[in-house]
């Protein structure tokens, strides 16, 4: 499992990509989906997920649809047009960052005489 600090920066691209692939999802579903897809390596905490979902909604990237399920409201999140436009740039940025990290950490150690 990766640390919360490490996941903080990539949570937004993860949310955007998931919603781009699956249409609309609710919070619990997002957590379970990420957990299953990453074979348990990425566990999104509720304390990080909901603030990010709400911030993305407020910034106009996501929209919500509330449905009554078992005496409670379930909020489904989906991408707005503005949100759809930032999915690819967000993914490209993460991939580029991954390549840069590989340059930094991927090289074998130079021998010290």
């Amino acid at each position: 499992m990766y640390s919360r600090e490490l996941l903080k920066g990539i949570l937004r691209p993860i949310i955007l990509k998931l919603l781009a692939d699956n249409g609309k999802m609710y919070g619990y579903e997002i957590v379970q989906h990420v957990k299953a897809s990453s074979e348990g390596k990425i566990l999104i905490k509720e304390g990080s997920l909901y603030p990010s979902l709400h911030a993305l909604t407020k910034e106009g990237y996501l929209q919500t649809e509330s449905i009554n399920v078992g005496n409670r409201l379930r909020k489904y999140y989906s991408l707005t047009e503005k949100g759809k436009a930032v999915v690819n740039p967000a993914i490209e940025e993460v991939m580029d960052f991954q390549t840069t990290l590989a340059l930094l950490f991927g090289k074998s150690k130079t021998s010290v005489s």
């Binding site: 609710y26 919070g27 619990y28 509720e46 909901y50 979902l53 399920v69 409670r72 409201l73």
Partner: peptide
């Protein structure tokens, strides 16, 4: 808004 999300999350 947040309470609705958390209620559903805990309930699920």
């Amino acid at each position: 808004e947040l309470m609705d999300d958390l209620t559903d999350h805990l309930a699920t």
